[in-house]
Write a protein that binds this DNA or RNA. Structure first.
Lengths: 144, 144
DNA sequence: GTCACTGCAAAAAATTTGCAGGCGT
DNA sequence: ACGCCTGCAAATTTTTTGCAGTGAC
């Protein structure tokens, strides 16, 4: 029994839920790849090997895996459905206030250098990168 | 005429496209907020002020704004439809290969320190942050 | 045996497309 | 005037839900 399955099993038990075959299959496939995935891709991948896991079950299992802390929304997604306007030059990263939405821009250079340093270690060629943080700006911190 | 509108206008001209009223309205609303948005939110916001911009037009304008480099997919989105499994500890950032999907994990500490340094300058309290890069891993660079 | 879970199909929501007229250049 | 653009409504695609039978505990 893989470590992930163990974690999932425990999580389900704690919530009075059951470890079923479809859930096992889904978990296994999730951990079988290192790529980001969406429901469609995951479903296809499962369908290539097994017959009987429905899309609905995949949709229903994903929130459980998130709650169990086994998967999360992809970090560097091309967030298909969220956008932000580009603000001044692109050589900045953003500190976005969760309360008032204010965006503070700061210089990217130093952060980028660190990133590139690590990329170089792996002979990895960075084409794009994103850096950003959410939290509370000085004004909104007072209110919390 | 705002700077953004100017950029958009130029972009459209260069492509033989036209600056129409709906496109102007959409652009204006995009830059009217600092928050991330999705089509629905943008559409509602427009509808609160104007009568005649259809959802379809919003959907059709967004790719243009992206191509014009005026908006981009949100940095820190909760990518509603992309997931990744959680891999070892979370104190890593990822270098994701665009070709083979391989994920290289690297230590976050140094990057985080830089981020925190800038946050401190603004008395900003970071609650969450994401860092990641796409590009080509050493294996896949050979093929390009 | 109980109650959560499943697949299926239908429903709802989100996105894309075709079309006939309207409008920027 | 030309041809891109628009709104609308229909089509498609994506996600959620209801239900009756099935299976984990």
């Amino acid at each position: 029994m893989s470590k992930e399955l163990q974690i999932f099993h425990e999580f389900l038990q704690k919530k009075g839920l059951k470890l079923t075959k479809p859930r096992e299959i889904i978990l296994e496939e999730v951990f079988h790849t290192n790529k980001h995935f969406n429901v469609d891709e995951l479903y296809d991948q499962i369908r290539r090997k097994y017959e009987n896991v429905s899309r609905a079950t995949v949709y229903r299992t994903i929130p459980l895996l998130i709650e169990a802390n086994l998967i999360k929304n992809a970090l560097r997604c091309a967030a298909k459905d969220h956008y932000e306007h580009i603000y001044g030059s692109s050589n900045h990263f953003h500190l976005v206030c969760k309360k008032c939405g204010k965006i503070i821009e700061e210089d990217l250079k130093e952060v980028e250098e660190v990133l590139q340093k690590y990329a170089k270690l792996h002979n990895f060629k960075i084409e794009e990168f994103n850096i950003g943080a959410n939290g509370y700006c000085s004004d909104c911190r007072k209110d919390n």
